[in-house]
Amino acid sequence: MEHWLWIILAALFFECKGEDKVIQEQGDVIAAEGDTVTLGCRFETTRTGPTLFWYKQEINSYPNYMLHCLSTTTLKAEEFNVDRFDSKINETSVPLKIQKLQLSDSAVYYCALQPTVTGNTKTLYKNLWSKDNRILHNIH
């Protein structure tokens, strides 16, 4: 029996230094165990050689640092230092690729520009899915 995962790409707009921001427009991603997904993250910055970060937040938990990308290097936290997780900076994006999906990959994923960000966030909508893909809760 195939188990479905839910991955929510947080649609947050973090602003740093006035004009710097990350944009995650993709929304919810529903995939099956074993699939590969790529979560998008665009960024705008006035900095040369920016550093982009990815975080994973599971239900009832805090955001957990996964990895960060420099111009040609990706450094991963120990628990994410496996081939299933990968990200690289392109000109204006830093997509996160997750391969061989597992149920434990169900979470909200955030990308950020620099390790500490401040600013306004747009409303985050989270859908919690049952195994047969019915929406269980819609949290605003």
Rank of each mutant, 00 (worst) to 15 (best):
S93F: 04
R42P: 00
F43A: 00
N60Q: 03
N138T: 03
Q102S: 10
I98Q: 12
I139W: 06
F43K: 04
T123V: 08
V108R: 14
L39A: 03
T45D: 09
F43L: 03
P63T: 04
Y55M: 11
L136D: 08
S61R: 15
F13S: 04
Q99V: 04
K21T: 01
A31N: 14
D35G: 02
M66D: 06
N127G: 01
G40T: 09
I135M: 02
Q102F: 03
A10W: 00
W54V: 01
V22H: 02
K17M: 09
W4Y: 11
T74R: 07
L67S: 10
V37H: 06
T74C: 12
G18V: 01
R134L: 05
V117Y: 05
L96D: 05
A11K: 06
Y65I: 03
L67K: 12
K76Y: 15
T48S: 09
T38S: 13
Q57T: 00
G18D: 09
A112C: 07
E44G: 04
T116V: 14
L67E: 05
C16A: 12
L70V: 06
V108K: 12
T116Y: 08
L113K: 00
V22N: 08
N138M: 03
T92M: 02
E15V: 12
E25P: 00
G27D: 03
D83L: 11
N60P: 01
P63K: 08
N81S: 14
K126Q: 08
E91F: 06
I8G: 06
E15S: 11
K56P: 13
Q57K: 05
A31M: 08
D105H: 13
A10I: 00
V22R: 01
L113F: 05
V108M: 14
G40V: 01
T46L: 11
T118L: 11
L101F: 05
A31P: 12
I59C: 09
T121V: 06
K88L: 11
K17V: 04
V37S: 08
T36G: 14
T116E: 07
W129T: 05
K100T: 08
I30N: 04
K100V: 08
D28P: 02
G40P: 03
K122H: 01
T72M: 02
V108P: 13
T36P: 15
E91D: 13
V29L: 12
A77W: 08
W4H: 15
V117H: 01
Y109T: 00
W6R: 12
I98A: 10
H68P: 00
N64D: 14
K126T: 10
F14M: 13
K100L: 10
S71W: 07
H137L: 06
I7F: 08
P95H: 05
K88E: 01
L124D: 05
L124P: 00
K97P: 15
N127C: 02
A107L: 09
L9V: 06
T121R: 14
D83E: 15
A107Q: 12
V94F: 10
T121S: 14
K131N: 13
W129K: 15
T51S: 09
F13K: 06
R84Q: 14
K126A: 10
M1P: 15
Y125I: 00
E58N: 11
G18M: 00
K126F: 02
W4K: 15
